[in-house]
């Protein structure tokens, strides 16, 4: 049993800590969290704003989604194939280490035999390399995989991650979702050195108004109760995005990406504010490619600087160790809702 430190020493330590805090300006007890971003669009358009924020936050890495992988549910006839490959772009547009990121649907792994995993690992590895070389990106030592696996696909997915490491010769990292932290017994712990915990999507937008499905602090805290004891070191991903949740005449829900609250308020011809953050559609029209009928209701969900600050403060207190923050995602309309300071 160790003796507690003598009072004077303690005072000195606390003093030093306070100085450190002041110097780092809100960096927290655990030091500044290095920042990076996800990039998730198929069509790359990195411009001035993106560069400014990226550099302003001292970012070095960009997790760029190179492609998705999906398999048709019937399995046999339509094997796992890549989808929505990122379109050719100019890697010089952003000074960053591009970390290839691949999104794989859960159903890809349903009933996948061992040879399927090996094949997929090889295919993923070589397509990653192909994208990298065609866009003249410097090689990254890492491949990042995003997959919302379940108890049923766990074994296949984990084996795939190992195969990918062997096939690519790179470090493999992956995403974690909140339910996988909470129910780690059922979900298992993936065989990676590092993971990124998506601290968002706390509920389903179809659950109705009254809760921010992107980030609800109460739910986040519930999921993360035992997060500090998770046997893997993880960075955290935080959301910057917003979307419109459209509810139709039958209570069904569709999402429209990249919509901010001001977009609805500015269009008085089509949207009537109905209170509580909800708008009613006044007449049939096309809204960002989705046909809305008169009578539908629309609300915007997003993340405000205050909510982001609250989330970060909570995570600091909860995790009590160093970790990186990866923002989802690097796109001007979302960035502009925050100042660089908000994101530090």
């Amino acid at each position: 049993m160790r003796r507690p430190p003598p009072p004077l020493l303690l005072a000195c330590l606390l003093c030093a800590q306070a100085v450190l805090n002041a110097a780092c300006g809100g960096a927290g007890r655990w030091g500044a969290h290095p920042k990076s971003f996800y990039h998730w669009k198929a069509k790359v358009s990195i411009g001035e704003t993106e560069r400014r924020y990226f550099a302003g936050l001292g970012c070095e890495r960009l997790y760029m989604r190179f492609f998705d992988v999906d398999a048709a549910p019937s399995g046999g006839s339509a094997p796992a194939a890549p989808m929505a490959k990122v379109e050719p772009f100019d890697g010089a547009a952003l000074a960053a280490e591009y970390v290839p990121t691949v999104f794989i649907t859960n159903r890809t792994f349903v009933k996948m035999p061992p040879e399927g995993r090996v094949r997929l690992a090889r295919n993923v590895s070589s397509l990653v390399e192909s994208v990298r070389s065609q866009n003249k990106l410097a090689a990254s030592g890492e491949i990042h995989v995003d997959c919302d696996w379940t108890a049923g696909t766990r074994d296949a997915y984990f084996a795939f991650l190992e195969e990918l490491r062997a096939a690519s010769g790179k470090d493999v990292s992956c995403t974690l979702r909140l339910h996988q932290i909470k129910f780690r017994g059922r979900a298992g712990v993936p065989p990676v050195a590092k993971a990124v915990l998506m601290c968002y999507a706390t509920s389903d937008p179809g659950d109705g108004p009254g809760r921010n499905s992107i980030l609800d602090m109460a739910l986040l805290k519930d999921y993360m109760e035992d997060a500090a004891s998770y046997p893997l070191d993880f960075d955290v991903a935080l959301p910057l995005y917003s979307w419109a949740v459209v509810t139709n005449h039958l209570g069904e829900v569709k999402l429209v990406n990249d919509v901010a609250a001001r977009d609805l308020g500015a269009d008085a011809a089509h949207f009537q504010y109905a209170g509580g953050g909800e708008y009613r559609v006044k007449e049939d029209f096309f809204f960002r490619g989705l046909y809305l009928n008169k009578g539908f209701s629309v609300r915007v969900e997003g993340v405000s600087p205050e909510l982001l600050r609250e989330a970060k403060g909570y995570l600091d207190g909860k995790l009590r160790r160093g970790y990186g923050i990866v923002y989802y995602h690097l796109d001007r309309p979302f960035l502009e809702a925050f100042s660089i300071r908000d994101l530090e």
Partner: peptide, 16 residues
């Protein structure tokens, strides 16, 4: 076609 998609309210198209 407008009223045909599952999400749309077909009655609006009927009216038109």
């Amino acid at each position: 076609l407008l009223g045909f998609t599952a999400f749309s309210n077909p009655l609006n198209a009927v009216e038109k």
